[in-house]
């Protein structure tokens, strides 16, 4: 049964990489069930992330957000800061797709704080870029400018010409 769980996860990932997102969802849902049977929280966390990602490409952004939120709870329980940061970043982008820019800003700020704690300059740059765009969408041009300037500074430091 445990091997069946891992295989469902691998199958889900393969469907996903092939662009078969409905099949990916189905396999990852199976993987999630088996992870729950075993009380395997890291596997549960992975399944929620994989499901969130597949729902993004199906255009089902509400479902993606629900799954990312479960992944975030588990990442916090498991004290995995890097995964917590990644999931906040995903939630920020998902709420941008849902045009809920206030929530997007909340999650991008959470991502920014963790990226700074972890000394992840690339992550910090991405957070500033995203925050600039979300503030622009809300018409907060002064704040958008501050984040754009921080993004520029970090891009110069990391040698990211694009």
């Amino acid at each position: 049964r445990a091997a069946q769980g891992r295989t469902c996860g691998n199958l889900g990932n393969t469907h996903y990489l092939l662009g078969n997102f409905r099949s990916a969802v189905s396999s990852h849902q199976q993987r999630l069930l088996i992870a729950k049977e075993f009380g395997d929280r890291p596997a549960e966390r992975r399944a929620y992330c994989n499901l969130g990602n597949a729902y993004i490409f199906l255009g089902e952004f509400d479902k993606a957000a629900e799954h990312y939120k479960r992944a975030l709870q588990l990442a916090r329980q498991l004290k995995d800061r890097a995964v917590e940061a990644q999931t906040c970043y995903s939630l920020g982008n998902t709420y941008t797709l849902l045009q809920d820019y206030e929530r997007a800003i909340d999650y991008h700020l959470k991502h920014l704080i963790i990226a700074q704690d972890l000394n992840d300059r690339i992550g910090e740059g991405r957070a500033c870029w995203s925050l600039g765009n979300a503030h622009t969408a809300l018409g907060n041009h002064d704040q958008a400018m501050q984040f754009a300037e921080r993004h520029l500074e970090i891009s110069k430091e990391t040698g990211d010409r694009s």
Partner: peptide, 26 residues
């Protein structure tokens, strides 16, 4: 439309490009 505008945000597009190849491996 507004929805298309959100999808065209450059930082979101970049995230989606990365996400397309991102899987949580067993």
């Amino acid at each position: 439309s507004k929805r298309m505008h959100a999808i065209q945000v450059d930082s979101v597009q970049r995230w989606m490009e990365d996400l397309r190849h991102m899987t949580e491996v067993e």
